[in-house]
Design a protein around this nucleic acid. Structure first.
Lengths: 348, 348
DNA sequence: TCGATGAGTGTTCACGTTAACACTGCCAGT
DNA sequence: ACTGGCAGTGTTAACGTGAACACTCATCGA
């Protein structure tokens, strides 16, 4: 154990330099693509690098350049399909751009959690941060706590001083509601997400706008918390009301709960009631019936968010004040259909 | 723009030292909890740190200590519920242990992708890595490519030289199959995952073992690829066979596809056929009917995996050769029931 | 022919931290 | 009183890299 101690020390730049018969600075120049290196010298250096299996030390490089080539991704709950997809897209785009990604999950959306996550990021000396959070407060806290750090928010609702990339929630909700109206439904009920989520609010507004455009009165709002359970609870209420023929749920999970409740109460979908969700989670095509929903291109959001962040880090003056909105698209499936006038559900 | 240039320079240790009237080494001692510092001095230093809002530079520290206090998490597809949950648990546990987490997603499970991800990790000079991958090849490649780097695999199937933490897939599959048999079903059909996934293989073995224990012949295996689509395809075949009364799908998504296909063909669940899944994804309780499934405690896997990695990094000699298995539990819901002898499905 | 230029390279320093060692007092033991 | 040790502190040297600058030759124009 103690004899030898000859763990093959990882080669450093100096070793490469010695083997190639040059100074370490020349090695550095080769690595960084500096022009003034004779081709023959460059080849010798590259050969030495290969031979010693040399990899530059990112820490040392970061110390002197003051750039770590690392970005931080702060996210709310990466188990959810949306954030997970966005994070994945960000990571891929970041790696393609030469950045590593350090993650930090928020247990909660309160200021304390954000502060903690921000601290961890800043201590890691990231070059920039991207916040995947449904509340802009998270991103703003980051900015406040660490001025000078480039920050981009995705899926955060627009407004404020932070560049934002997100899906057009308003447009998506209008699309969903309009779809149901155009099928011939008198009005559309809405199972909303929590009021303190911007996404939820925008979807409510989109729903209201579509109803207003059709000169239809908005029925009372039902509140959920994104979970299937809350959708189920809302579904039970809707099942008891024979006026209801069309429901727009603010996400697919709640739509799932609604479907479950309606089925349990013997309300047919789409025969008696049409249901539309939001998110297009992978399962939605295989629900019974398959779920009409609004597709969010999370990949695109992640990619655009990262590109925006990189532009800002590189000092691009292009930083657009207006939020970058990715359009949402409707995916029409079996859970939505025209109302059947011949059918008449039993009252409660 | 160019005037001033007085960006408040981030305080370094020397600034703190000067303000506190000590040497930078004393500041370092305070930060690292070195014992030989007079309480009065320590207080002065802490006050100076607070006043200047000093944060140690992780890069400089890492350069000299040769420890970055960062671990790498290499994962296959973080959009999937299992990996996402595991990653989240790892990240939380890591942060609690004072480590940051850098992620690297594998686009594919081939050696090239792994090699690439490993390279990115190693260049980042992580202290250790945790591989969330269904194939041990990923972890082994990591070990081969970077000897000396502590590596732990989770959800990887046992065997080989790498410590592994995973859910007891074999036991879970036996549980699911046994559950169906104990309800009175003659035999149980299985929709398996891809053959090159260890998880899929272990589940097949667990299924076979349970059938063998009950002295029941195993029906032909149906292959899926984890997707709802593949489950749907398998479900169509099963729907056409009147002998089938019980199906165990290797994951919930495929079970979802099976349910969809059976429903489409007018086969009642659980009236005609019972279906059991695996994973206990959040949606499974709200499918129609709610899905009996095997719960995997991904959080526990993540936590144990991280603790194991930390132990190895700290040089604990405890490194257990035998894989650490987290037990799986059966969650009984509405999609499984005793076979109904009075019913007789139509042949195709 | 000579100075200017610039390509190609080496030397030195800086980045911010911890480790190793040196130094100063003070106190206990002889 | 002298020595040894130890608590408390400072000084110096790393860690591995890139930037700034210096240096050596060719080459070119006058």
């Amino acid at each position: 154990m103690s004899i030898g101690e000859s763990t093959v020390r990882r080669a450093v730049m100096h070793d490469v330099a010695r083997l190639a018969g040059v100074s370490h600075q020349t090695v550095s120049r080769v690595l960084n693509g500096h022009p003034n290196v004779r081709p023959a010298t460059r080849d010798r250096v590259l050969e030495a690098i290969r031979q010693l299996n040399y990899r530059p030390n990112a820490l040392a490089r970061g110390l002197v350049t003051r750039r770590s080539r690392t970005i931080g991704a702060i996210s709310f709950d990466t188990r959810l399909f949306g954030p997970a997809s966005t994070l994945l897209a960000i990571e891929r785009a970041a790696r393609a751009a030469g950045y590593s990604v350090t993650i930090s999950s928020l247990a909660d959306l309160d200021a304390g959690s954000v502060r903690l996550a921000v601290g961890a990021m800043a201590d890691q000396s990231v070059d920039g941060a991207i916040v995947i959070a449904p509340r802009e407060s998270a991103a703003r806290a980051l900015l406040d706590l660490h001025p000078g750090l480039p920050v981009v928010a995705v899926e955060a609702g627009y407004g404020g001083e932070i560049p934002v990339v997100s899906v057009d929630q308003f447009g998506g909700a209008r699309l969903a509601t309009g779809h149901l109206l155009s099928l011939g439904h008198r009005t559309v009920w809405h199972v909303a997400g929590p009021d303190d989520w911007l996404e939820a609010r925008e979807r409510v507004e989109g729903w209201r706008a579509a109803l207003a455009e059709a000169s239809v009165a908005a029925p009372p709002l039902l509140r959920g918390d994104w979970s299937p359970e809350s959708g189920y609870a809302a579904g039970l209420k809707l099942a008891g009301d024979t006026d209801v023929t069309a429901v727009f749920a603010a996400n697919d999970q709640m739509a799932l709960g609604v479907l479950h409740a309606l089925h349990e109460r013997g309300v047919g979908v789409p025969g008696d009631v049409s249901v539309v969700g939001f998110d297009n989670i992978p399962e939605s095509a295989f629900l019974i019936p398959s779920l009409t929903t609004v597709h969010q291109d999370f990949d695109e959001v992640g990619r655009r968010g990262l590109r925006l962040l990189v532009d800002i880090m590189d000092g691009e003056p292009t930083a657009p004040r207006c939020p970058d909105r990715v359009p949402a698209t409707l995916v029409s499936r079996r859970s939505s259909a025209p109302p059947d006038p011949t059918r008449r559900r039993r009252g409660r």
